[in-house]
């Protein structure tokens, strides 16, 4: 309901009991009191840590196989990244069968929004979301992770790879 001047006043919005506040405060206190006897959902981090399952989307990392990285520096992850967090510079190598490799691969964790698009678009299953959620940086430069920080042995990523195989985002018809 609106007052004639067109403005909504406190009187219009609230009834008498609401306006004197006291019953509302009592209701709030009752809720608080009840919670004291419920089981706690918070954790005593860092002593107690959360162990995510394969479905968790933590910090994106690059998969490292025995003969080197899987990434072929196609730049699709960089293209699809909505936050422009990934920079890839391709290089050419004659040593491996795959002639193209990332000379530089950097993810700016201050930009990354953990959407997992890079993982989804990658044609080589070379970038996956890890379980790492503990990211502490002292300055902006530190938050830009290069290949040395991103490359993770494939053995440590089994949960996620297994999850991806069983839960494909896109089922080809």
């Amino acid at each position: 309901m609106r007052s004639p001047a067109g403005k909504e006043t406190q009187k219009d919005r609230m009834g008498f009991w609401e306006r004197i506040y006291l019953p509302e405060i009592a209701k709030g206190m009752a809720t608080t009191f009840k919670q004291m006897f419920e089981p706690a959902v918070t954790r005593e981090y860092p002593e107690e840590r959360f162990a995510p399952t394969g479905s968790y989307r933590g910090r994106p990392v690059l998969v490292l196989e025995e003969d080197g990285e899987r990434c072929v520096a196609c730049g699709l992850c960089s293209r699809v990244c909505p936050a422009l967090a990934i920079q890839v510079q391709a290089g050419e190598t004659l040593e491996r069968d795959k002639e193209r490799y990332p000379e530089k691969f950097e993810i700016n964790m201050l930009r990354c929004i953990f959407c997992g698009f890079c993982e989804e678009v990658c044609p080589e299953e070379a970038i996956v979301m890890s379980k790492d959620y503990e990211m502490v940086f002292q300055n902006r430069e530190e938050a830009i992770l290069g290949k040395e920080k991103l490359l993770t042995p494939v053995a440590q990523l089994q949960d996620r790879l297994e999850y991806l195989r069983t839960h494909q985002y896109y089922e080809p018809k």
Partner: peptide, 9 residues
């Protein structure tokens, strides 16, 4: 030029 950049970049 080989591999210097993707065309869309």
């Amino acid at each position: 030029f080989r591999f210097k950049a993707r065309v869309w970049d």
